Computed example of a mutant assay.
Amino acid sequence: MPKVETFNKEVVIKQATKVFHRKSYSLTSMQDLVDATGLNRSSIYNTFGSKLDLYTVCLKSYQTNFKCSIENILKNINSPLKAIEAIFILNIKQNKNNKNIGCLINNCTSEMANQEVTIQKFLDNNHKSMIKLFQDFIEKGQQEGSINKNNTAYEYALYLLNSIQGLSISGILMNNCKQLESIVKTTLSTLK
C-alpha cells in the first residue's frame, strides 16, 4: 500500500521558498529545509526529488504568485503606462514585504543562470514572458499615442525588463520607497 502524504504540499513549498529566498540555493542545506518544513529528509526527497527539484518547484510557485499579483492589480487599470508603473510599484512593495532580500528569480539569475540547464530553461522562459508582458503594454500605448515610437515595443520591453531587474537589486540596498519610486518615474519618463 502506497504511503499517503500527511502534510500540505503548498505549505511546504512556501516554507522552502522562504529559506531559498533568504539564504540562496547554494547556502541552503537539506537540514535548513528539514528545519523549515518540519519534514524529514526522506519525505522531502520522496515528494520533491532532489534539492534542485524542490528549488525549481519553489521558483515556479514564486513566479505564479507574482503573475497572480500582477493580474490582480491590472484588473482595474486601462492605461498601458499606468499598468507598467503598477508592475514596477508591485516590485518595490514585494521587496519591502520580503525584508529587502530582492526578487527570488533575479537572485537565482545571478546565482545559477549558467550552472543548471533546468534553471536556465526556467529563467529563459520567465525572461521571455516578462518581455512579452511589457511588449504588449507598449504596443497598446504606442497605438493609442501614450507611449512614443522612438524605439520598437520590443526594444522598450527589453529596457523595462532590465530596469525592473535593476530596481529589484537596488531595493536590496535602498530601504527608501520614495527613492525607488523616483527611479520608476525616471524610467517611465523615457516612454513618454
Results as ranks from 00 to 15, higher is better:
K96V: 12
N98H: 09
T186L: 07
V57Q: 09
L27D: 11
K121I: 15
D53M: 11
L54I: 03
S42H: 01
S110I: 12
N175V: 01
I73A: 10
N151W: 14
S170I: 05
S146L: 08
F137A: 13
L160Q: 07
N125V: 07
K185I: 14
K82C: 06
I131S: 14
E71G: 15
K149Q: 05
N8M: 05
G102Y: 14
K192W: 00
A153H: 00
N8S: 10
N162E: 14
Y156G: 12
E71D: 15
S50Q: 11
D136T: 11
T6S: 13
E144F: 10
Q63H: 05
A83F: 08
P80V: 11
F7P: 09
Q115V: 00
T152E: 01
A16E: 10
N114L: 11
N91R: 05
L74R: 07
I92L: 03
L173S: 12
K121R: 11
L33Q: 08
S146C: 10
N114H: 14
E5Y: 11
N98A: 06
S189C: 11
I92D: 00
I84L: 13
I84H: 04
H21G: 01
T186C: 04
K140P: 00
K18D: 03
K75N: 12
N125R: 02
M130Y: 02
T109R: 10
N91S: 14
E116P: 09
N40L: 09
C108G: 14
N72P: 08
K99W: 03
S61R: 12
N151F: 12
S24Q: 15
K60Y: 06
T109E: 01
E5I: 13
K128N: 06
K140G: 00
K3Y: 12
V34D: 00
K185D: 01
S110V: 13
F7E: 14
D124M: 15
I87Y: 13
T64F: 01
N72A: 13
L90S: 03
F88T: 08
E10V: 10
A153E: 02
N106G: 15
S189I: 02
K75A: 12
F137E: 14
L188M: 08
C68I: 11
N175Q: 04
Q179S: 00
Q165T: 06
L39A: 05
N46I: 00
S29W: 04
K93C: 04
Q63G: 01
F48P: 13
I183M: 12
I84Y: 01
L81F: 08
A153N: 04
I87M: 13
I105L: 03
G166Y: 00
N151D: 09
K185M: 05
F66P: 03
Q135D: 02
